[in-house]
Design a protein around this nucleic acid. Sequence first.
DNA 1: GCTTCGAACTTTAGCTTTGAAGTCTTCAGA
DNA 2: TCTGAAGACTTCAAAGCTAAAGTTCGAAGC
Lengths: 182, 182
Amino acid sequence: MADTPGVTEPTLEEQIAAYQREFQDLDPQVEKIVSALSRLNRRMNVAYGRQTAALGISNADWEVLKALVLSGAPYRMGPSDLAKRLGLTPAAMTHRIDRMVTEGLVTRERDEANRVRVIVELTTDGREKWLEAMRLATVFEEDLLQDLSADERTALGEVLTRLLRRVEHAQPDAGGRLTDLE
Amino acid sequence: MADTPGVTEPTLEEQIAAYQREFQDLDPQVEKIVSALSRLNRRMNVAYGRQTAALGISNADWEVLKALVLSGAPYRMGPSDLAKRLGLTPAAMTHRIDRMVTEGLVTRERDEANRVRVIVELTTDGREKWLEAMRLATVFEEDLLQDLSADERTALGEVLTRLLRRVEHAQPDAGGRLTDLE
DNA sequence: GCTTCGAACTTTAGCTTTGAAGTCTTCAGA
DNA sequence: TCTGAAGACTTCAAAGCTAAAGTTCGAAGC
């Protein structure tokens, strides 16, 4: 339904024209970058969602698998660490883990060394699902970037990380303006 | 909580190193672009959310206001058109409109010409909230891009729209590979 | 004119997430 | 040892979403 064929989304150009009509003080160059970033990200997430769904797991499951795998062997984390890593509340993490345990993607057990803690561990099946998802994702990503030369890819990566650093190392003040922290 | 100070998110470089450790067939250059895109978008959404919250409206409200304003005067749309435009189900739209009517951002009335239809119309207050949000957003966006020269901005906009066109005009096949439609 | 179909919206049930309250475990101090 | 406090997780209630069923209105066919 989010991708029903008949949906009439304006093109990027039409949207920017509408912005300029309704809001005079707009830099179309800036708006083009921001809108394209946002749309691109949305489309990519739809694509990832389709791929993980084909593997029988949800996008939510995929996020958890990713965090566990990237934590490195033996692929164990506590629920609160996972929650912080994914930007969820501990309560949501509890429910997600419930689901994933019944799906056989992870196991949950008490830490006998400190019985307040819980250990969530990736199962072999969970790890294989992640690898499978990664294979699909890399094919998609390579296709997405296929029209870009090696130089263009380098430049794009450099510019994006520069922007990222600017957002990560700065905090907007009350007016929304970014101010450097260091 | 999603932006608690003590959260230990790995840097982009650390994350890519972890990917390579766990998944050999990975092009770090591609991963860098994709990960940076995703992170950048997430950070920007957090920033927009903070700004709209400061105006007393939710991010969901903002999306609806945006769709109505961009539709042009007299700023009217039907619930199903709004739902399609935002990628929601009609049911979700019904509830959102309920909320926004009580907040005074829009009005809802039956179309007397065709009583099956409903007309959602932006109020003056709703339009002003959107303008205020746009002012904050443009300040943030200009600050975000301040380190980029005019040439760099042009190049970035061009590359992003090229990628966007590739995702929008192509559909992944069963294996996730993008194939051109025309 | 009556009936049936379809379109547009609303309602209902179920799921996921959040915020707040509750439970259990550990640790430090009396 | 006992008590209090803090930490880690779970439970509960409420909000927002989806899918599916229900309602209402309009239009086409008999």
